[in-house]
């Protein structure tokens, strides 16, 4: 066995023993819940009298209240915390290379997310906005009891239904061209809404926002040096940037000089973007480490979940 493999194996073994010991002694990584029962009234309908139905929910309870009556460890949610910790460490193991734990959790991620997208697409749009318009009576009686009584069948919705079937035809071994029709609708609609909106918000409005006074006077009539410099820099900056993007004229002579200024301005912009990107990534890492140290290992307690324990 290679030295490196032995090292990692040993490290995992020690880590496992320490974790197991800590879980037994301290009880970390547990989720406590309380069973909450509420009563809901069901109105009388044809052939059925009004009745009261008992509803049960399990709500998370902080560990500090674990001795309170009715509070118990939730097996499913406790396993969940350990699975989540494994997933977090599995993804992090990518830092050491494409390890088997990484490949395993990555495969799970792909499967779960694709299925989740299908589920939300089905329930939130196909049921709620397609079937509810095609067969409102059936939907009201089954999946959507709250569907407004005003909703009546609208057969225009046969068009998106047909387009949907045509789109799914892509999965069939033959006749993939059939999917071009719904695709064309999709592309046409995107082009239609973006053409107007981009011109309005990102072209006309941006030019309008750049038309600024280069000499600014304050409310008392005095010359505002900083505001004047700021406005001048913004106006000239936008113009320099646009000159750089104007490739129809060779970037030589005066144009070349201006384009150079544009490049420098863009470098400042990209430098700022880099700084902000770093900020974002570190925040995400801090969030994951907090999960490991707090929810799983109980090493820290920033939200006082275990205060007094």
């Amino acid at each position: 066995m290679q030295r490196e493999t032995l090292f990692w194996l040993g490290l995992m073994l020690v880590g496992g023993v320490l974790l197991g010991g800590r879980a037994i002694l301290v009880g970390n990584g547990r989720q406590y819940v309380e069973r909450v029962t509420t009563t809901a009234d069901v109105a009388a309908t044809e052939g059925a009298a009004a009745q009261a139905v008992e509803l049960t929910d399990y709500v998370n309870i902080p560990a500090r209240e674990r001795d309170a009556p009715g509070v118990r460890v939730s097996f499913a949610r406790t396993v969940g915390i350990w699975v989540a910790a494994f997933c977090t460490l599995g993804i992090m193991s990518f830092l050491l290379g494409e390890t088997p734990p990484y490949k395993l959790v990555e495969s799970v991620f792909v499967g779960v997310s694709a299925a989740y997208w299908m589920v939300v697409g089905f329930w939130s749009e196909i049921v709620q906005n397609l079937l509810s318009h095609l067969v409102p009576g059936l939907m009201r009686a089954t999946l959507l009891p709250g569907l407004s009584e005003k909703t009546v069948p609208n057969y225009w919705y046969v068009v998106p239904l047909v387009l949907s079937v045509m789109m799914l035809w892509r999965l069939a071994p033959k006749g993939a061209w059939i999917a071009r029709w719904p695709l064309a609708f999709f592309i046409g609609a995107t082009a239609g809404i973006r053409l107007v909106s981009y011109l309005e918000a990102d072209f006309v409005q941006q030019i309008s926002s750049t038309i600024l006074p280069l000499v600014v006077f304050g409310a008392d009539g005095s010359f505002d040096v900083w505001a004047s410099i700021k406005n001048t820099l913004i106006v000239s900056g936008v113009l320099l940037g646009l000159v750089y993007f104007f490739f129809s004229v060779p970037h030589k002579g005066v144009v070349g000089g201006l384009a150079k200024g544009g490049v420098w301005l863009l470098m400042i912009t990209f430098g700022a973007s880099f700084g902000y990107t770093v900020m974002g990534r570190i925040a995400l890492l801090a969030d994951r480490l907090e999960f490991l140290f707090d929810d799983w290992l109980w090493l820290i307690d920033p939200t006082l979940q275990r205060a007094g324990m």
């Binding site: 913004i234 320099l240 400042i268």
Partner: peptide
Amino acid sequence: VFNLAGMRAITIGIALGVASTSL
């Protein structure tokens, strides 16, 4: 100031690109 100006130039460029591609 600088980022706003640079990004505005990029935004205007993208808007023209989107409009022409859409057309």
